[in-house]
């Protein structure tokens, strides 16, 4: 058991080193990408402030509460992008071109290799941006800061990342059936454009069916909403249990879907 763990952490370390070498050979690119992420966040903040010029709350979320939600969203999606996004985005091309053969042949878990091969240091650099926004908006709110809150928040952030990862991984695995599907980056854009707002706004749509579906069936709404709720609005221990249950369940399910898809995989080219 320990040797397995040791082996995988050595592989991970190797991936991390390779990524760093790659990143250091394009230093200007790194800088420009960080700047563009700051710009993106800045533009989102402008949009939020534009909305709050006209209203004091969005379905019960005040300006600073919503900024905290946005910070949480940015934090979670940056962690996801740092470790998984580039990798999951490449899977559909690997399936189409048959490059997946080389990954399947390696003596290590395929899902592990596919999911973590490239680490994006640029996205890691974005994580502090999310933290800063969270800390700033939290300081503007009059809510208690306790060890319990912070630890629950961190657990929920992790489970949010796991949930996103599982959804995106399943999406990529479906490329086996749908060659050249809508690209993963588009799917990611739709996912995040849906999940960065308060979950409550979906409740009046289609008599609550949409909210129910996005919370329980295709659970994108819990990703950022739950941690933000726990930290600055209501503290409900059962929500933490629920989020963990979803994250672990989805992770197992994604692995099942992937293995199922692999049975249908027929290589390409020669």
């Amino acid at each position: 058991m320990t040797s397995v763990l040791g082996r995988y952490s050595r592989i991970l370390l190797c991936f991390a080193r390779n990524g760093l070498v790659r990143e250091l050979s394009f230093r200007v690119n790194f800088l420009v990408t960080v700047v563009s992420e700051i710009l993106w966040l800045g533009m989102m903040l402008v949009f939020v402030q534009v909305i709050f010029r006209f209203t004091r709350q969005i379905d019960g979320w005040s300006n600073h509460e919503y900024l905290f939600l946005l910070g949480t969203h940015f934090l979670i999606s940056s962690i996801f992008e740092a470790f998984f996004f580039d990798n999951l985005q490449r899977i559909s091309a690997q399936i189409r071109t048959g490059d997946l053969d080389f990954v399947l042949l390696k003596p290590a878990n395929t899902q592990f290799l596919l999911s973590l091969e490239r680490i994006s240091y640029t996205a890691i650099a974005n994580i502090p941006l999310g933290v800063i926004l969270c800390v700033y908006s939290f300081s503007k709110l009059d809510v208690p800061l306790t060890f319990q809150h912070v630890s629950m928040f961190l657990i929920l952030v992790c489970s949010g990342v796991m949930t996103l990862y599982s959804l995106m991984f399943m999406f990529s695995a479906t490329s086996v059936w749908l060659i050249r599907q809508t690209s993963a980056s588009h799917f990611w854009f739709y996912l995040t454009s849906c999940s960065k707002y308060p979950a409550e706004i979906y409740k009046p749509m289609v008599r609550g069916v949409l909210w129910f579906a996005l919370t329980f069936v295709f659970p994108v709404l819990i990703v950022a909403n739950l941690p933000a709720n726990v930290m600055v609005r209501v503290f409900e221990p059962y929500l933490v249990a629920y989020a963990l249950f979803i994250a672990v369940g989805l992770l197992l399910f994604s692995s099942f879907v992937f293995n199922w898809a692999m049975r249908k995989y027929r290589s390409a080219s020669s």
Partner: peptide, 10 residues
């Protein structure tokens, strides 16, 4: 869908 939901709330 998000747009419709968000602006209703706003």
């Amino acid at each position: 869908v998000t747009t419709i939901a968000l602006w209703r709330a706003v």
